[in-house]
Design a protein around this nucleic acid. Structure first.
Lengths: 110, 110
DNA sequence: TATAATACCTAAGCAAATTAGGTATGTCAT
DNA sequence: ATGACATACCTAATTTGCTTAGGTATTATA
């Protein structure tokens, strides 16, 4: 039995929220940052992250900027105005999901 | 743009948790109860629920008991001992997911 | 010199929803 | 009595969004 890292649908919310708060970041950095913030509890796999970044860029929620550091290419992503609006929506949905789950799994709140 | 009702993977947790707390319930009743507890915010679709109930039964986490009420068949599900253990695991995973999401989306906590 | 870390990427497979049907009975208003 | 709605079960096709498992290439370290 292997465990999942993410509940489906949460990755876009995490990525947009991080970029909204922390400014531009590149993919690999996001994987490190999420691991750091959650004390290693949550790992964002690259196989999920890169397609998500491309999808968010295609939707116009993120923009990208190439940079060459130490002869290695980095793709810095930053959030657009459209992305900020969508982030607010996703955060509301996530908070609503969390509060619904909490009343459902916590008999004292129901 | 349509909105999702559930984050993927959460339905089993909801069903097991409900049955652990409230004793035996039948499928249709679960859909009503979730809607009621969440003040109509969360709807469990039958297309998701029934396959989930069958899967949990096949895994030995739930047992089933037929009943005939008003000439209509009801299938009452109740949780097994194995199901109670698995519920505890799923609740821990859910709580961990929620606390991880909260530090990720809440800059003040990070 | 090989292993790990950095940094990007894609494709196949799978799980778990959504969407959209279906059957059948009971209840209630017109 | 007939149509609509609630009750109560069900399945199949499709979609989404992960995991798993690769791949390339450079730099740092043992």
């Amino acid at each position: 039995m292997q465990k999942n890292n993410l509940y489906k649908g949460s990755l876009s919310t995490i990525v947009l929220s991080l970029l909204k708060e922390q400014g531009k970041m590149y993919g690999y950095q996001i994987t490190r940052e999420v691991e750091k913030i959650t004390s290693g509890q949550l790992k964002v796999t690259e196989g999920a992250l890169y397609p998500t970044l491309h999808k968010l860029e295609a939707k116009g929620l993120l923009s990208v900027e190439m940079a060459k550091v130490n002869n290695r290419v980095r793709k810095y992503y930053y959030i657009t105005e459209k992305g900020k609006k969508e982030t607010a929506n996703l955060l509301n949905e996530m908070k609503s999901f969390i509060s619904n789950m909490e009343v459902l799994i916590n008999p004292k709140l129901a």
